[in-house]
Amino acid sequence: MENILEVRNLRVWDLNSDKVLIANNSFDLRRSSCLAIVGESGSGKSITCRSIMRLNGSSLRQSGEILFKGENLTTLSEKKMRRKRGRKLCMILQNGMSAFDPSCVIGVHLKETLAEHFDCDWKKNEIEEKMKLAMESVMLKNPIEIMNKYPHQLSGGMLQRIMIALAIVLEPDIIIADEPTTALDTVSQFEVVEQFIQLRKKMGCSMIFISHDLGVVRKIADEVLVMKDGEIVERGPTEAIFLKPEHKYTKYLVSTRLALSENFKKLMRGETIVAES
């Protein structure tokens, strides 16, 4: 399988403190596969993702190459990079509650984003219709009503699914999900993970899935990267990582997994009950 994204010698450092946050990391994302990045908070998972999108804060600098379908993203102009964001590389954030402008109804963000990417080649009604269908497909009933609500009137899980629905309409090549289940309660977590699995099945897009919940990772990922202190300490196919962890840190993570994701596993066994409610 060919690689859709190749990250070469990615290095990120803080300009103010000269602290190196990501040290010379290289990894590949294969077409239509899901790569999970696991590790504790502060290990550089989110910064890696934001570096791919080139969305790190102004005090962070990055070097190295990021090849998307052979094109180096790091040398693109800001304008060309902006066109790639959303349309080609789509991000789903951890906290749905703060991901939307609190003073606007949800529909404003959706319409602005869609108008930005589709205005030239699609008619307005068609996009709206597609958005509605996408929202229904992620189990959001009454899409029109939801679009007219403010973020604080919706639940974290609903907002997360709205982000997924937006990704469905944008049809990106790569979806980057930055801890999409961390801020949710176990029931919503289950629903959101289900939607991610559906999303991969339906669209066949590639995905980078950041999480520290190994139960979720095992269910969704094809390959796993383990990060610690800005370095990749282990990588390999998911099952191999879980069955035969080699690095000390990975062993530690896997051994604590059972305790961590006990609730999640319980829910997975009782799938039907949740789906009905």
Binding site: C90, L93, A99, D101, S103, E116
Partner: peptide, 28 residues
Amino acid sequence: NEDYVLYGRACGLPEKKITVHILRNSLQ
């Protein structure tokens, strides 16, 4: 530094539109 600014950028919104959102919230 709010998440909605990051998400707006990640969705490919132009800086101008993002600034309007920021202004609307900071003017309160």
